[in-house]
Nucleic acid binder design. Structure first.
Lengths: 335, 335
DNA sequence: GTGAAAGCGCTAACAG
DNA sequence: CTGTTAGCGCTTTCAC
């Protein structure tokens, strides 16, 4: 709380190196033409004084803040955290910091946050949210923006997300290729795009083998364990001899596993179960350990940040469109 | 990505209001002596131009950035997120933003982050981490710092945390007051302070009734469901007729519940179970719904931010010491 | 190659 | 009460 010594400024460095402040700036930022010798002297002096450029001054003069804003609609929830870790990871290298804001899913609040970020002159913005359903665009923003997970409704924006369909397709394919023939799908609410896409993935894998997903075995419900438990009963009572279940989330899958166990069904012997998310807590608490689809959220975050950075540096706007990355199947004991 | 119109500056506002830039600054910041009339004219002009003060310029001139840094050692994990939400919540009112950094539990990295924050001239810093065990101090820092959850080893720092002992004491007291007599405690690893403190809470509640925690029934293990399941078996095989179990976390409690169910023990009829954390996912997946201790992390975050703010505004350093807040028992169906 | 000078947009001290 | 005057610390032309 003391450390009274005034922080060193460019002028101090300049004086020590026997050059002018302008030269110090060039040397330290590696721009312009300077003799290697001067450059070295400046660096030495800066090191000697433990010089740290004042960030506000630099921003004011250069117009860049080396800060990007992240607006989430997910209260830093379980889906956006990995994304944020990826962003931080990829940004840290360029000494760029992130300013995190929680929009709480409220568009009005979101716009206020955006204004605050713009007013703070952030160099770019990442928008992310839990829901897979497309979201309204932030509209015209004076800096590059990239949407992650929840894609923007406006095709002029750039969105980056993972492939729900391919994820469950992978899961179903795995079940089929290990000899399962009769699959069920336990989704979340039907109004959620993710629920519907994931169902389609299962259907696609089945179709590839000339099979179909029986409508009785395509269930929609909640994103909860409780629903998973009920669903297990429903599937067993359906009269179909199901031998594989693809679930739309790890929580649902866990409920299904618990439900099946209570009905004395052996997993994976009698029925194989696959989840979605690769959420550690759920996966590890599950018995048997859950085979699941990993959407690699962290690498989505990393990629988003990398793209944003290059847009910032190149000053060329991001091309609009939706980029979709594949998921990976993580095989454990339940399938 | 366009919006070419240059943003309005104080000078634009001054011109429109027919006053000088200095006056605009005073009017908008509500400082100094100004006629109500002028003040109003300035505000009007500012509104008309949709004036947003440039943040970097303001920081450079005033030395304040209206930004606080948050360093977490928990990768934005489940414990620090509620704390952060509380911080954001309480800071947003003062138009203060937060800059979040993940130290990954690495002291070296932590120090780099701190330097970056200081270099960005943050007005204050919050340090938080998952572990209850005291952590090394950040040492001399030119701005106020407050530690949340993990208290600082240096008594000159201000730390804010919750009361583990009181939490489990509450839990055990509840069990005793509903007629349970023979309690067990299932902790996490013994090397974790939280495990030991929570055990002490149980002992205290028992002592208050002239009872004791049998050493056989004070178990240390892991912070996992798996351990909870094993612990259930251990307790039942102990030969003691236990009728209440206090667990050191909701995950453990959930394992205990699953373990008991498989051994055909009725909860809460035969044995009552209490958890710790009030972690929604665990609480709601548990059967029966878990009675648990809530450490109110979000309000710790809010309080930390409030204290930090007043230290920043008052320019008086934070008083050293550890402030401990009580937990609350949330009664559901398991006890 | 390097230095001098101007200015980013705001605040703050001091005159008037 | 209000305007003027200096900067805050850095970058960035533009001469030399």
């Amino acid at each position: 709380m003391t450390e009274s010594k005034r922080a060193a400024t460019v002028r101090d460095v300049a004086r020590l190196a026997g050059v002018s402040p302008g030269t110090v700036s060039k040397a330290l930022n590696g721009v312009g033409q300077l003799s290697p010798d001067t450059r070295a002297r400046v660096h030495e002096a800066a090191a000697a004084l433990d010089f740290q450029p004042n960030h506000s001054a630099r921003s004011l003069a250069s117009g860049r803040t080396f800060t990007v804003g992240v607006i989430t609609s997910d209260s830093f929830g379980r889906f956006t955290i990995p994304v944020m870790l990826g962003i931080e990871d990829s940004l840290a290298a360029g000494r760029v910091s992130t300013m995190l804001c929680d929009g709480r899913g409220d568009p009005v609040r979101e716009n206020q946050l955006l204004e605050r970020l713009i007013n703070r002159q952030v160099d770019g913005v990442v928008v992310t949210g839990r829901r897979r359903d497309p979201r309204p665009s932030l509209g015209e923003v004076p800096v590059p923006v990239i949407y992650v997970l929840s894609e923007s409704l406006d095709p002029a924006d750039l969105s980056l997300t993972y492939d729900d369909r391919q994820g469950t397709e992978l899961a179903a394919h795995h079940l089929l290729s290990t000899g399962r023939r009769s699959l069920a799908y336990v989704g979340g609410p039907e109004r959620h795009l993710a629920s519907r896409l994931r169902r389609e993935g299962v259907e696609r894998a089945l179709a590839a083998q000339g099979l179909e997903l029986d409508p009785d075995l395509a269930l929609y419900g909640q994103w909860s364990e409780t629903w998973g438990r009920s669903a297990a009963t429903i599937v067993l009572r359906s009269g179909h001899s199901v031998d594989g279940i693809v679930c739309a989330s790890d929580q649902i899958a866990r409920g299904v596993l618990d439900g099946l166990r209570e009905l004395d069904v052996q997993v994976p012997h009698d029925i194989a179960v696959v989840g979605f998310d690769n959420w550690e807590v759920m996966v590890e608490g599950a018995r048997p350990l859950l085979t699941t689809v990993d959407p690699h959220l962290e690498s989505l975050g990393r990629e988003a940040a990398t793209r944003l950075l290059s847009a910032i540096q190149g000053d060329e706007p991001l091309e609009g469109g939706v980029i979709t990355r594949g998921c990976e199947l993580i095989i454990r004991d339940s399938a």
